[in-house]
């Protein structure tokens, strides 16, 4: 394998969980709900996927369990923020703390156990193509799903009536309510979808990225996904670019560590977080750009008058 192939393949592996989680968060935020529990839902997905794949031997059942665990984890958050109008920031933090704790408890039994790795699908003939074959046609099902999901989200948000309703709920919940849209129902669906996506992202981590269970293995990726949504200014297309850019930073610092670059490994390890901050600052500087697309009711509770 050529070196460029190896690097691009690992960038895809690093970018996929970010893309998935950010995709779900984007939908939730478009509906007006800021869910800071992505990290917690993601790690619940990771432990759920690992546990089921380990006991059944099937990575595909593992994927299903990851999605389910993420969606399930989002339910208490949805109930509190939507039905009980609690503060979204604090509730999201509670979800992250709970998810990290619960996953640690469940995962204790699996520490050091060999995981089940999800194998790539080789598309006959195409995967042998020179230069691009291995990169485009020899990926696992979650990588393909992440791209398909992104396209579907884009079509849903901007080409369907339901998507228009969802954006209306996020931009002006009172108007949407007055027009007969069920604000809470839309928000519940959006948050649960976000949870399912975060769960799938977690499943990718424990089935593909490092097929084993380690406590806290999401390592802040959930938070990076939240930043990615701002980076993309709530536009799905830009999410793809952002996820691959961050994936590259995440992976290139690992390549640099492996190559024995004369920089302390801890500095290289903190690079992705610093890069995330810098990108957030660069995007936020352009306040009109951020304002233009950010959902006007993001983070605001909704209580109908009647």
């Amino acid at each position: 394998m050529e070196i460029y192939e190896a690097i691009i393949l690992t960038i895809i592996t690093a970018a996929t969980p970010l893309l998935l989680a950010a995709c779900g968060e984007l939908v939730a935020e478009r509906a007006g709900i800021l869910n800071l529990g992505v990290e917690g839902m993601m790690i619940m997905g990771a432990v759920g996927a690992f546990a089921v794949a380990f006991s059944t031997g099937s990575p595909y059942l593992g994927i299903a369990a990851g999605i389910g665990a993420g969606a399930l984890a989002s339910l208490p958050f949805a109930f509190l923020t939507i039905s009980m109008v609690t503060n979204q920031v604090a509730t999201g933090l509670a979800l992250t703390i709970l998810g990290l704790g619960l996953s640690g408890m469940i995962g204790d039994a699996y520490i050091g156990q060999p995981g089940v790795k999800l194998q790539p699908i080789n598309i006959q003939g195409l995967s042998d193509l020179p230069y691009v074959g291995r990169i485009l046609f020899s990926q696992d099902v979650i990588v393909y799903a992440s791209i398909v999901l992104l396209v579907l989200v884009w079509i849903f948000l901007f080409k369907t009536r339901a998507g228009l309703s969802l954006r209306a709920v996020g931009d002006s919940h009172s108007s949407a309510h007055a027009l007969g849209v069920s604000v809470r129902k839309v928000r519940y669906m959006a948050v649960i979808f976000g949870g399912a996506c975060a769960g799938l992202a977690g499943a990718y981590l424990s089935l593909v990225y490092t097929p084993q269970w380690t406590e806290g293995m999401t390592a802040g990726r959930g938070w990076i996904a939240v930043v990615l949504v701002v980076f993309a200014t709530w536009m799905p297309g830009r999410l793809l670019a952002g996820a691959y850019l961050f994936g590259a930073v995440l992976i290139l610092q690992l390549h640099a560590q492996a190559a024995g670059v004369n920089i302390p490994s801890q500095f290289l390890s903190s690079l992705p977080y610093l890069a995330t901050i810098i990108v957030l600052v660069l995007i936020s500087r352009n306040r009109t750009l951020v304002k233009k697309n950010s959902p006007a009711c993001l983070g605001k509770p909704f209580v109908p008058d009647v």
Binding site: L95, I97, L98, L100, L102, M105, D108
Partner: peptide, 8 residues
């Protein structure tokens, strides 16, 4: 880790 669960 149950401590984190109780805290959350």
């Amino acid at each position: 880790k149950i401590a984190r669960v109780f805290q959350g």
